[in-house]
Nucleic acid binder design. Structure first.
Lengths: 350, 350
DNA sequence: GATTAGCACTCGTTCCCTTTGAGTGCCAAC
DNA sequence: GTTGGCACTCAAAGGGAACGAGTGCTAATC
């Protein structure tokens, strides 16, 4: 059931006006603000039809219309045109992201910060998904008797480490031999193919007594697995309080409560990413609107994410969470630009 | 101008009632809820006097009284009695803090989490102040040409590291020689006594060409200095929205906005700590009430901190931020218990 | 001199009623 | 298919009365 041209224009105008004013849009104000060559009565008919089809809805009988989730969906999928950033906006973003930082994690964080500043919304970033990266180096450093530091250098230029407990009477030499053996056998293997058995096999030809070995191997193994763990960084949560969409304390609380559970949000972003990857669609961004977001308290939000890349096999996400009554075009173009810059800077690091 | 006994009791009762009900307290309800052997008129006289002295105030002419900042101050300084936790409360806290964690940072974080859960307020922790800790080990690991990892093991059992850029043509051996030399000369020195010059001197007898050396030394030096940097962790900000004290969107926004600037909060906590240290007062906690807190948007909050210890020379802070209309006794006793448990667990780690 | 009963007064809160106005749906005419 | 007209709806804004918890003050009492 395709919408005819005028209905499309009407829907577009309603979304635009509602985003701009936060007031339900009536047929009359639509006529005033836009060049429709028909009367308000005609628009009223169109609006009744749009409502019947589920694109717009009424807060109450005698009010104007507001877009439904489906209406926003139609808008972002086929009605809006992504606008380009001004020179100044571009410069601001560039200035904040590029520069002196020379560690990936810090770079990603500064991109996230920039994203929140530029949009005025909550921004987020996921740590790079390292399961496809491979081991380049592994060192085990004795710290003191019973304690060692496992240092992993991964292909994406990432360094991870973890303090582990080891048997007291393990010597420095044994440690070096062991890490050498593991390193030799596992270098080049993607993290997600490393299992405890792989690690055990790798260490076979060291002449360390087996019970001792087992404990250290287990620790080394968990260190490797931990490197693979996702973490999320959120910024600007408090900015949501500035939007009238969350002026009710209850909504605001639900929203911030959910956002404070970073594990949950991380899981959701991950899910979005997987879905996008398997669906084969190759948009430069993913978007979820209102009830499409399966997180409590985000019914009035939209959730937009994009993917950044570190080398060939490693990627992560950045994203924005804002009121669903947002200027999608601006937000998307800003996020797109931040992503682009971030990718460029990440490339420089490797 | 000492308050007489009855006035003290009146002030105490007003704070207690106001904390419990969030309603301005009138002379009549005071008589009803407490066993005063005098009439309401007498209390009215006392209240007028307490107001004149600045301990309580009226939101408007025909309302009851609420404690002023000064009133709360008097209350926490001399009126309240710290109550003890129930078995169950203690167990809950113990359960959450002790356990399997064997890294200090994680332990501190879990204590912070517990603190927020137990009080229902915002909790925070500062990373340990490492400037008084000393270097135990230093290793520089080659990662790839031009990149190395500086690993520092500090006396408090803390491990810090940083990826640094080094000249491309520096060899592995040179690196080992260099880190050996630095380590040998700086081991046992407190971080805050290490300057660039110290590092430079330490490396003197390596035979590495000087311009090369300079860059690496500078990187090593910044790595050491960075280890000393304070960071803060905040949790439970959204919980503040649940309190009627912040039911006005504006207040809530100011509060969360300020809390989101973690550098600022960290600076403030640090200042509190320094002040307490120099003033020589040896309370187990520090407390700031309302306007005493020099941070925007925290006028209606109280800020309570305590100090945890890692070894002899290293310490950090944990703290709680809640509405100043809080049950101080409960919060303080909970924080005290969390601190005690945290200290115990930290001791086990070393 | 401290305490008390009594009383006029204040002022935020609550409730109810009216008015306003933007917006709607529907119908008959074009 | 489009339009002007019209009756209808309903949230929001405004006004005013009644309420009531609380106050300060005064004059009497212990």
């Amino acid at each position: 059931m395709e919408l005819d041209d005028r209905k499309k224009r009407v829907l577009q105008a309603i979304v635009d006006d509602y985003v701009a004013t936060n007031e339900p849009v009536g047929s009359k104000s639509l006529i005033e603000r836009h060049q429709f060559q028909v009367s308000s009565a005609t628009l009223r008919n169109d609006m009744a039809e749009l409502e019947r089809l589920g694109f717009i809805e009424k807060p109450h009988t005698s009010a104007g219309r507001i877009p439904s989730d489906r209406g926003y969906r139609e808008y972002v999928d086929s009605l809006m045109k992504i606008d380009t950033l001004t020179e100044k906006e571009q410069e601001e973003i560039e200035f904040n992201i590029s520069g002196t930082v020379d560690e990936a994690a810090e770079l990603i964080r500064s991109a996230t910060h920039t994203l929140s500043e530029a949009t005025g919304f909550v921004s987020l970033s996921m740590s790079p998904r390292l399961r496809k990266s491979f081991l380049k180096q592994m060192k085990i450093l004795m710290i003191e008797p019973g304690k060692a530091l496992v240092v992993l250098v991964l292909s994406a230029g990432v360094v991870k480490d973890k303090v582990v407990r080891i048997p007291n009477y393990l010597t420095d030499e044994q440690m070096i031999k062991l890490s050498g053996a593991i390193e030799k056998n596992l270098t080049g293997k993607p993290l997600d193919e490393i299992t405890f058995v792989t690690v055990e096999t790798a260490a076979k030809d060291t002449e360390i007594p087996s019970p001792l070995l087992k404990q250290v191997l287990y620790e080394a193994y968990t260190a490797i697995k931990q490197a693979d763990q996702l973490s999320i960084y959120l910024e600007g949560e408090h900015k949501m309080l500035a939007y009238p969409d969350f002026s009710s304390l209850g909504r605001a609380r639900d929203l911030l409560g959910t956002l404070s559970d970073s594990g949950m949000v991380a899981g959701y972003v991950n899910e979005m990413e997987n879905l996008a990857a398997t669906s084969g669609k190759k948009d430069s961004y993913m978007i979820r609107i209102g009830q499409e977001i399966a997180l409590e308290g985000l019914d009035d939000c939209s959730f937009i994410t994009a993917t950044y890349n570190m080398g060939d096999t490693v990627s992560g996400n950045i994203g924005v969470i804002g009121p669903k009554r947002m200027d999608y075009s601006r937000v998307i173009s800003k996020m797109d630009f931040v992503k682009k810059k971030l990718n460029e800077e990440l490339k420089k690091l490797t």
